[in-house]
Simulated scan of single mutants.
Amino acid sequence: MGVVALSLGCSRGVRPDSAVAGTKPVTGKVYSNEAGEQITLIGLEPGDAHKALVAFEGTKSELDGQVLVAWTDQDSRKTEYWTQWRGHKQRFVAVHDRGGYEDLVFSNVNHTGYTHLKPDTGKTGALKVEKIFERYQDAEGDKKYQALLAFDRKFWTNQAETQLKEAVAETNKACGSKLTSAVAWDSITDAQINEISFGSYCKGPLESLQKLCERSDEAKRAIQAKVQTVECRVDPKAALKLEAQKVIWSVTSGETVQPDQATTFFTDNL
């Protein structure tokens, strides 16, 4: 994040158990785009704490109006801002050095899309970093805000189901089929939901089927006749099986059947 020094007022006391205890706001920059999205980054000192505040406005997401504490990870070309949200450590914001200009990349809670913002000189000049710091302190004491930081199994399972429904619709359109999808949530622990993006992992076989249908009418006919359901589950080993018109897609931490393997499996077994 480029450094913009701003004059500071007197900060009110910070609770000893606050995530920003022992820090103070010293720099800030506002980024915006033509879509009306605005993200404000507030640098905190001391620098070796590697902390910042991130404020969201106009992003058309549940993050709007929120101020989150972030842990920064920086290299020569970018700074990533990692925050806690609904029990996940997530990177909503990364600022890239594009060789002469800054590009802030924002990804939403479910990471299904990305938008770009650039430094806003006018809004940065009017920024009061102490106000953002105080907004965060107020939020820390709010029960609704704290609930949004805690792990939320239902939220993440719903997110995954929504992504899968979209993938199923695209596959059915390509294949002229009536496939359904299912996730064996009883095989999946809270820790695994917190670790694995099931919306992304579980749509793998659907994407392979879709590509096969886009290549040939023969694949379409085979999938229409032989596949009714795609089930995603967690097993000790990543695997792909076809049983009684059901594709069983097993994933595990850090491992899934690769796209080429899935395509080969379907080509050989359908």
Rank of each mutant, 00 (worst) to 15 (best):
D235T: 11
A167T: 08
H111N: 14
E170H: 12
T40P: 11
G125E: 10
K51W: 02
T267I: 10
Q90A: 09
N108D: 15
R135G: 01
C175S: 12
K51L: 09
G122W: 05
T72A: 02
T59I: 04
S208Q: 10
V95G: 01
N110R: 13
A238T: 04
W71A: 03
R135L: 01
Q66W: 11
V168F: 08
Q74E: 15
K123Q: 14
T252Q: 01
Y136G: 08
K241S: 13
F56M: 12
E45H: 12
M1P: 07
C202L: 08
G254E: 02
S181H: 14
V257M: 10
L242Q: 08
D17L: 01
Q245W: 12
Q38V: 13
S197N: 15
D120H: 05
V54A: 05
L41I: 14
D48C: 08
S187L: 11
A70Q: 04
Q228E: 10
G36E: 11
E218D: 09
E170M: 13
D186Q: 14
R98F: 00
T59N: 03
V183A: 06
V129H: 02
K203T: 07
V109I: 13
L63C: 01
S187Y: 10
R91C: 09
G141F: 09
F92R: 01
D235H: 10
G9N: 14
I39F: 11
K144Y: 05
K173P: 06
P25W: 04
A55W: 02
G58S: 04
K154D: 07
E62L: 08
A169I: 13
G47M: 13
Q146C: 10
E214T: 06
E80F: 00
K143F: 01
T189V: 07
K173Y: 13
F198E: 00
K173T: 14
I132A: 00
Q210P: 00
I248G: 12
E102L: 11
G87A: 06
E102F: 02
K203E: 12
F106D: 06
R91N: 13
A52L: 11
N33S: 08
V14M: 12
V95M: 00
Q210T: 07
R12E: 14
C213A: 04
T79A: 02
C202F: 12
G204T: 06
K144I: 00
V247I: 15
A225H: 01
K24W: 14
L104G: 01
E207I: 15
Q159M: 09
S177T: 10
V20M: 07
R215G: 01
L44M: 12
L209E: 03
P46R: 05
R15W: 07
L270Y: 11
K118G: 14
I39Q: 06
L164H: 03
K118R: 15
E62R: 13
G199Y: 10
R15D: 14
E34P: 07
K203Q: 13
K220D: 01
G204D: 02
V227C: 04
S11Q: 15
V251E: 05
P25H: 10
D64H: 06
K241R: 15
L242V: 02
W156C: 04
L240D: 01
L8W: 09
V69Y: 07
Q84R: 02
A55C: 04
Y145H: 10
I39H: 05
A126S: 08
L53Y: 07
D268I: 06
V54Y: 05
C202H: 06
E166M: 08
Q192R: 04
L270T: 05
D217H: 10
Q74Y: 04
